[in-house]
Amino acid sequence: MSEFPRFLNIPLADWVDRFMDWILTNFSGVFDAIGHTLLMMLLNIERFFLWIPWWLVVIFVGILAWRVMRKWTMGVVMALLLVLIGSFGYWKLAMMTLALTTSAVVVSLAVGIPLGILMAKSDLAEVIIRPVLDAMQTMPSFVYLIPALMLFGLGKVPALFATLIYSVPPVIRLTNVGIRQVPQDTIEAARASGASPRQILFDVQMPLAVPSIMVGINQTTMMALAMVVIASMIGARGLGLEVLLAINRIEVGRGFEAGLCIVFLAIIIDRITNALATKQQKSLES
């Protein structure tokens, strides 16, 4: 039996705890403000999703799917999946889930695209951000619940925050990749024309990165949806909570229904955003 020497112990857990304490005592005002803003946004989006009549959503999704996938059958299928969610009796919960997902995606893009640009423009930023993103994506998602709880308490905001941490990496990563893979000779031509770095970014790099960013948006959305069940543990209402309750009470049928609804939502969102991404790619190539 061998004992690991005590003097090599690193009290990382202590440090993290102390760091969180320090943040809480010094920046609680900041987090309150952030929390409040996030909550307002989330509530408004949720109110909107619960307000629009179900049939309007069905028709809208059907037409959107038909337009972007250029197949009317796909439009019908997507609309039918939505109707099924309603038939299982989960319309309201699905809309709440959708609201949480949408909020997470909106904030992810608002934060992720600028960070992706920063990462593409500065090698130093890339060196710093890349491992952070790796960590964010490989860490078990439950871990995010802890700081989210500590910073924002129980409820919708920490759920949104945890979802956000989990879903923001793809859009940052793919914005970075998209900008960095813009051919050097195209950028050089813009420089030779006398374009400023800003003009190069908006006239050349961003437009050429759009297909890649769209893939990022697709992945971000799927990650956000995947996080929904986990986020329900700290107070997000919606389909996730339903699954969680079913698991706790060992109600297989109920869990199956709710789970299926999440899958349907995932399919609808994935197919539509994916088709949008491919469409962007094609319009660039043709």
Binding site: D185, E188, D203
Partner: peptide
């Protein structure tokens, strides 16, 4: 004004 071997046009 510069002209490049590989054109360097904006594909979009």
């Amino acid at each position: 004004g510069m002209v490049f071997q590989y054109f360097g046009l904006f594909p979009h």
